[in-house]
Design a protein around this nucleic acid. Structure first.
Length: 297
DNA sequence: AGAGCTCCCTGTAAGC
DNA sequence: TGCTTACAGGGAGCTC
């Protein structure tokens, strides 16, 4: 499932191909990919066609592509199964392809950008860009201090140079919910999904059901450091280089799977203490943790 | 405002 | 073997 490291791999893979490119044609194959778009599929196609992409930006799990001279951007969220793929022009339709752009890049020539999404939780939309309240760049991949209105409520992610550590500490100290729920709240800290939440809690030796407010400042910082460490490591292992001939930008997870310590390791020994990792239900999801290293307080 | 729940969707895998 | 059910889960939106 694409979380921050996977989405960043997609952003970094797309950037050399799409920044500076002009969208010559846009085809919506499935309107369900436009659930966040305010207008009709025809209006999406019309507005995107002819647009030139100025940047490939990301905050948390959201991507956006500012359109030149318009104060508007195409916003993309991959949901659970979304992919953005680069293909040669005229490439056959993918099984779950929802939207396609035919672009022309001044250096790389013609390419197709495919939005493919099996479970349709992802979407594209055209949205207004609004100034950031803190005046810093909107996210990775852009120096412009704007962010799409759909993304404005999303907190900066922990890898963002303008991430507000003080606000992170204050939010955790104030919230009484389980720390895992708070980690997954994109308005508190963005980019974390179920996998990296479990990994960071394991690394910081914190039980997922611990009340956020009960954590000491030291524990909060240890957790934040763990989030940064696990995401940085995942990103480094997933980094891919741009291939001008045939670019395959793949949003699927899995490359980091061999490094996982908690997620998906139910019954396997904790690599720190040997105790079997347990799995418990958690708000329609699962939590994986070591019952010995991550004692409930 | 915060907490906690449902819903959206499809493919895979486990269970009977 | 074939059907049914559980499960994966991001984030909007709802109620209390």
């Amino acid at each position: 499932m694409p979380e921050l490291p996977e989405v960043e791999v997609v952003r970094a893979g797309l950037a050399p191909a799409v920044v500076g490119a002009r969208i010559e044609a846009c085809t919506v194959l499935d309107a369900r990919a436009l659930t966040r778009h305010a207008g009709s599929p025809a209006s999406f196609e019309q507005e995107v066609t002819g647009g030139s992409i100025d940047a490939a930006a990301r905050r948390g799990k959201f991507l956006w592509f500012p359109l030149r001279g318009s104060d508007r951007a195409v916003v993309a969220h991959l949901g659970m199964s979304g992919q953005m793929l680069l293909r040669e022009p005229g490439a056959p339709t993918e099984r779950h392809e929802r939207i396609r752009w035919d672009i022309v890049h001044p250096e790389h020539g013609e390419l197709s950008v495919l939005f493919v999404d099996q479970r349709t939780f992802g979407s594209l939309a055209v949205d207004d860009l609004a100034p950031t309240p803190d005046g810093a760049a909107g996210g990775w991949g852009t120096e412009t201090a704007t962010v799409p209105t759909q993304v404005s409520h999303i907190a900066r992610d922990p890898l963002d140079p303008a991430f507000d550590q003080g606000r992170f500490h204050a939010d955790l100290a104030r919230r009484t919910s389980a720390i895992k729920r708070i980690l997954l709240d994109q308005a508190v800290v963005s980019g974390i999904g179920n996998i990296y939440a479990d990994e960071a809690l394991w690394a910081a030796r914190i039980h997922p059901e611990t009340s956020a407010a009960s954590l000491s400042r030291v524990a909060r910082q240890r957790l934040l450091d763990a989030v940064v460490a696990v995401m940085t490591k995942a990103l480094a292992e997933g980094g891919t280089s741009f291939d001008a001939q045939y670019v395959n930008v793949n949003g699927q997870a899995g490359y980091f799977a061999h490094s996982l310590e908690a997620y998906g390791r139910t019954g396997s020994p904790c690599t720190r203490c040997g105790t079997p990792i347990v799995r418990v239900a958690f708000t329609n999801r699962s939590s994986h943790y070591c019952p010995r290293c991550q004692r409930r307080r």
